[in-house]
């Protein structure tokens, strides 16, 4: 099979295999390439200068970054003071990017060293421990949200009465920002993991109820009516028709909501006793170790992507009837 470019520009047309591979590869390769270009091609951007030789200027220390203009001004001043100065006595430096944009190889190194470097203080967790802690907080928060959110959503989507008693309040609560409950959660639940789990819960639960209700309502009404004429009703119908009918979509909803849970993690980990991967990021940013920051962000991205791919694969296995729809 060869690449058929015309399918690239036809709406809602499946692609051939090589095109798919090429584009998926490009989806990661293009941002990476841009990053490399900006990091390694000195004529692109590079608004600062990394000092390699102070040239007698007191505040130019080797390795520090200064803005290009500042650097140029100092050099000009030196030349003006002493027109016959030798070039080797002037301050020297190489163009570089600001500290918040580390180059790919620096991040790659940080990615490796972040796991191998022991914490600065003995009571601080290793990176992998922080990570594991974060995953647990997310898992519990999401578990509780699902435990209550899915049944309520299905009920609201099935019965108009349930919809009217459940949805208005949920709709109201969904607009309240979850972080606003941080202090309250700590006051009620203490300073350890409970308030963090509560923040994840608050952040996903209300959305979940509404999304699941909408998904349930999208179930083909003919299926419900067919089951009624076949003598099925009430909770039995929910179990035998509605739940299996919406399951593939419900599964997809959960995959999307799980992504949201990660967004609330950063708030959750800042309250009470700080912990977890996002705390690691905040702290590293404070020390200006941006390579570590990028490495940690990358880790979260990879975890998210890998979970999603696994869940998508699993979904295809679980719902063989769904791929033709």
């Amino acid at each position: 099979m060869s690449i058929n470019f015309s399918t690239w520009f036809t709406p809602r047309t499946p692609l051939d295999k090589p095109s798919k591979r090429l584009l998926t590869f490009g989806s990661f390769a293009i941002p990476l390439l841009l990053w490399c270009l900006f990091s390694y091609a000195p004529f692109l951007w590079h608004p600062q200068v990394e000092i390699t030789q102070s040239g007698g200027v007191s505040y130019f220390r080797e390795g520090t970054l200064v803005d290009k203009e500042v650097f140029q001004k100092v050099v000009d001043k030196k030349v003006a003071e002493n027109p016959g100065i030798d070039v080797s006595e002037l301050p020297q430096g190489i163009p570089s990017n600001p500290v918040y944009l580390p180059a790919p190889h620096e991040v790659a190194t940080a990615f490796y060293t972040a796991f191998t470097t022991p914490p600065k203080r003995s009571n601080e967790p290793w990176l992998h421990e922080s990570l594991w802690h974060s995953i647990q907080v997310i898992a519990w928060g999401f578990f509780w949200a699902m435990l209550f959110g899915v049944p309520l959503g299905v009920l609201a989507g099935t019965y108009a009465s349930a919809s009217h008693i459940i949805e208005p309040f949920t709709e109201f609560f969904r607009y309240l920002p979850a972080p606003a409950f941080g202090a309250l959660a700590v006051a009620i639940l203490g300073i350890y993991d409970a308030p963090k789990i509560a923040i994840i819960f608050i952040g996903t639960f209300f959305q979940m109820v509404l999304i699941v209700a909408a998904t349930t309502r999208k179930l083909n009404i003919a299926l419900v009516e067919a089951s009624l004429t076949l003598g099925c009703k009430g909770l039995r119908m929910i179990r035998r028709v509605i739940l299996p009918g919406i399951l593939p979509d419900l599964y997809r909803d959960m995959r999307i909501l799980l992504g949201w849970a990660w967004t609330y993690l950063i708030v959750a980990e800042l309250i009470g006793t700080s912990s977890g991967i996002t705390w690691f990021i905040t702290q590293q940013a404070r020390y200006k170790n941006f390579d570590n920051v990028f490495a940690a962000i990358l880790i979260i991205g990879i975890i998210g992507l890998v979970t999603d791919i696994i869940l998508a694969r699993l979904g295809k296995r679980l719902f063989p009837w769904h791929n033709s729809k």
């Binding site: 083909n220 003919a222 299926l223 009516e225 067919a226 004429t229 076949l230 028709v241 719902f319 729809k325």
Partner: peptide, 12 residues
């Protein structure tokens, strides 16, 4: 019993 115009078999 009822048979609908639109297909109403349970797809799963």
């Amino acid at each position: 019993g009822m048979v609908f115009q639109s297909y109403s078999l349970f797809p799963w």
